[in-house]
Simulated scan of single mutants.
Amino acid sequence: MSDRPALDFEAVWEVASTIPGWLTEEQAKLLFDTARDLSSAPLLLEIGSHQGKSTIVLASAALAQGGQVVAVDPFVDGRLFGGASTRTKFENNLREAALGDAVELLPEYSTRARPTWTRDIDYLYIDGKHDYWTLADDLKWAEHLPDGAPILVHDCYSSIGVTLGVLAHVLPSRTIRYERRCGSMALFRVGRPSWEDRRRILREVPWWLRNVLVKILLRLRLRPVASRLFGHEGPYDPY
């Protein structure tokens, strides 16, 4: 492994794709491209890092411009999140990718870290706890962003809690506008939204409801029905 990360997305994805996580190649490219569009020495903040799949994508783009990623993750113990063992895998993956110096780990809940945060950031990626209240709080990190800065939200229009948070706090917002999505990865930007920006959010509601129905069918062990009715393949929730 070289001392510096590759600058092209294909080489970055070759490394990141080997790490477990719910991030598609197209979504990773959206993360990478929006990060590469930032000015020099950017500070990126990632909420929810797991084993570092998205962190490696963001850190590769940031390091190429003399920047850094702050990775916020409490590494909660338990079967679902893995706790200390997941943190060890996260740190090992960054070290093997030669990106340890490009990432500052903040092992804390995002909702606890935010009230005392004082640094400006240039980029916000939200993939933390998927309930309504946490998403609503995570959006408040945007107050540290400049106008036009990207806010990317994973599992948007897929998770019930995340989508309800977007409908309640972004749809009526005067400071965040919706741009587009890639699968369940939604791209917002700091800025005054137009009515068309708001309508674009509402036009995603049918796709969100479709995903909710798919999840229900999967919980009922009716995967063939989900495939036949909605074209959903595989055992995992839409992401």
Rank of each mutant, 00 (worst) to 15 (best):
R203P: 02
S227I: 00
L167W: 08
M185Y: 09
R199A: 14
L99P: 05
L135T: 11
L31H: 08
R87S: 06
R87E: 12
S173T: 03
L202V: 05
V205I: 15
G161H: 05
R192H: 12
V15T: 14
C182I: 15
V69H: 08
L38N: 02
L80E: 08
R219C: 08
E26P: 07
Q65F: 06
R95K: 11
L167M: 11
I216R: 12
D77T: 09
H130T: 01
G67E: 03
R180W: 06
A62T: 03
V76T: 11
T175E: 15
R203C: 08
A168D: 15
V70E: 08
S194L: 08
R36S: 15
Y132Q: 11
P235R: 08
L213Y: 04
L7C: 10
A41W: 08
P146M: 09
P5H: 10
N92A: 15
W207Y: 13
E108R: 14
R112H: 12
R95C: 03
R112F: 10
P115C: 01
G161C: 05
V76F: 05
E196K: 11
Q68T: 14
R87Y: 06
V15N: 01
D147M: 13
G231W: 04
A6I: 13
H154Q: 05
L80P: 04
S110I: 00
Y178Q: 02
W141H: 10
L105V: 14
G83R: 03
H169C: 10
L218C: 02
V166F: 08
I216W: 11
G161N: 02
L23D: 02
R210T: 09
L135F: 14
G234D: 00
V76H: 06
A35G: 08
Y125C: 02
A186S: 15
L43P: 06
V205R: 03
P107M: 00
F32R: 04
Y157S: 12
F32G: 06
Q27Y: 07
D127P: 01
V214Y: 01
E108F: 09
P193D: 07
G21H: 01
A149D: 10
L145G: 11
R4H: 15
S173G: 06
W141T: 04
E104L: 14
W22P: 07
